[in-house]
Amino acid sequence: MATRQRRDYGLLGEDGRSAVEAGLANADWYRVPVERKRLKELMRRHDTTAIIHTVIWLGLIAGLGTLTVVTWLSWWTLLIAVPYGMLWALGGDSRCHEAGHGTAFRTRWMNDVVFQIGCFMTLREPLVRRWDHTRHHTDTIIVGRDREIIEERPPRVVHFVLLWTGLPMVVPQVWGMLRHSVGHIAEDEKQLIPESEWPKMLRQARIILAVHAGTIAVAIALGTILPLMLTSFATLYGAWAIFWVGLTQHVGLAEDVTDFRLNSRTVHMNPWLRFCYWNMHYHLEHHMYPMVPFHALKELHEEVRDQCPPTYRSTFQVYRAEIIPALRRQLKDPEYYIHRPLPDAA
């Protein structure tokens, strides 16, 4: 049994300093070459696809929300909560992600609006989210540099079980909002977020908290938790979907490497999951070329697939073949990780 000490995944720890000294911070990453002309075609923006997706997405939320009101406190409500929670939490998470990159729409304000909606649905502060995700793309799964590493090595069993309730995601986010609303900025946030952005961050936290307080006030005034079930509670009961697909992105793969093919997965998913997830199942491709919009990732996948490890058939395959066995093994051997096979010519 390995005796490795638990590493420090925080931004202020020894592992973060070691990563900088080892040249793993802001490093030069390998990307499968794509000819410039073809890449420009793939990066091309337009509004139509994202508008259609957004109208359907918000329309489904409105429709299922109305059904929730109509069937409130019947067994139907529970049934409706499954797709509603997925559309709210996973849909919000992925829209927040893609619009945050600014690639979903060509028109900037559309990206900004959908980004704000997605952040609200996932109880995130937009500015914190933006800087966290920027770092995630700079230093993907570099220990001590990337705050978006979902599971550590060795895995934290209680944390892993609680993940499916959404609490390990939501509690620190809400606590962060509360801290920011009274002007407190944590030391790791000071390292991550430029000082020029701090006043905006504090202002955003106060506005978001006021909106959520307003929802609570409406619930109290109406004498029902229904307004919360349709908003902030939906983040919690839909969180399982965020993690069902989210864990497939990187969990169990290598840490501290500078080749996305070794630390990121592309997993085929069914049309419903692909819609909710806005095609982020092409996650390896997204990390290599984050400028490529969600609707062109399939084409990018075809361009680079012969230089990448095999694609997984389904989320179930990833969990059964890799994530669960890897996490179990990492409990005993934290050094263990899955070695992704690279093509010979790569």
Binding site: K40, M43, R45, H101, G102, T103, R106, T134, H137, T138, Y289, P290, M291
Partner: peptide, 17 residues
């Protein structure tokens, strides 16, 4: 390596504009 749209250049790494 980024994308030019109208009078904007977008950085290929973090989409800074």
């Amino acid at each position: 390596e980024g994308l030019v749209m109208d009078n904007i250049i977008e950085c290929p790494k973090h989409n800074g504009r």
